[in-house]
């Protein structure tokens, strides 16, 4: 069970192929991280899962996206939301002109179990103790870190089975990133919530995850458990910024080496 992508191709506008035969598995209760540089196809993967490709004229042209045994490829985003897949879009998309409280309330707008909603609100306050003080504030004027708390809180209010986070660390100070990932890790462990996390900030993300995938040029080029990733030379070099030898590498060699590596995918 959980989420499984099998040989998924995504094509934009009928001509531009962005995902090439991507295979990803997100087992129930685990935290999986998807790494990759700009344009590697990470966000496209997420949009394919949550059914938001359509707005950008994208389409899953091959393969299957299974969630708990149901094929949701090219599905209706609201139907997918109702199955329990909730995505936090990249770029801190709070509802700017609404208050923090209204933002949180809208997260739970499709739920009728009001008592559980109240309980979940307490949980959100527990993970983000700063939020209760911000309730009457206009969301658009929060700081970047506060917005990210609000966004994750809003997603939790929907009581998701699978929480998808698209680059939550973007534009945050390193210390805030550490704290944020720690909370995300806690949510994963304490709630048993399945989390799929897309990141460029690999170090903090890998530390919290159970399993990781590395994408490049629309393909999965590498995957492994946390330990495997942390020990993998390529990951160390490209994502964790550790050099292997004593001397510093020539950037041209790196580029060359990397270009060669791409073919391995």
């Amino acid at each position: 069970m959980g989420l499984t992508l099998t040989n998924v191709d995504v094509v934009y506008g009928g001509v531009i192929q962005v995902l090439r035969s991507a295979n990803i598995e997100v087992p129930d209760g685990k935290m999986v991280v998807l790494l990759g540089s700009n344009g590697a196809g990470k966000t496209t993967t997420l949009r394919a899962i949550s059914g938001l490709l359509h707005a950008d004229l994208g389409e899953v042209t091959a393969g299957e996206i299974q969630f708990n045994g149901k094929n949701i490829a090219n599905g209706d985003p609201i139907g997918i939301f109702d199955l329990g897949i909730v995505q936090v879009l990249e770029g801190r998309k709070v509802l700017e002109h609404l208050t923090v409280e209204q933002n949180l309330r809208i997260g739970a707008h499709r739920r009728s179990d009001l008592r559980a909603v109240k309980h979940d609100l307490e949980k959100v306050y527990n993970y983000f103790p700063r939020l209760p003080d911000l309730l009457p504030r206009t969301a658009g004027y929060l700081s970047g870190g506060e917005m990210q708390m609000l966004l994750i809180g809003r997603a939790l209010m929907a009581a998701p089975k699978l929480l998808i986070l698209d680059e939550p660390s973007m534009g945050l100070a390193p210390m805030l990133v550490e704290q944020l990932f720690e909370v995300i890790g806690r949510i994963n462990r304490e709630e048993g919530m399945t989390v799929l996390l897309v990141e460029q900030n690999a170090r903090a993300a890998i530390r919290q995850c159970d399993y990781g995938y590395v994408m490049d040029g629309g393909r999965i080029v590498l995957h492994g458990t946390r330990e495997q990733l942390e020990q993998n030379q390529d990951v160390q070099e490209f994502y964790l910024g550790l050099s292997i030898g004593e001397e510093r590498r020539n950037f041209r060699d790196v580029k060359h080496y990397r270009r060669r590596k791409r073919w391995l995918g």
Binding site: A55, V86, L89, R154
Partner: peptide
């Protein structure tokens, strides 16, 4: 628009269509 669920949905759509869609708002 500020209190009821249905109204909040409309307010979300007023803000941004894509974000609204990602929150399961039609």
């Amino acid at each position: 628009f500020t209190r009821s669920r249905r109204g909040l949905r409309l307010a979300a759509v007023a803000e941004d269509h894509n974000t609204a869609l990602s929150l399961g708002v039609s």
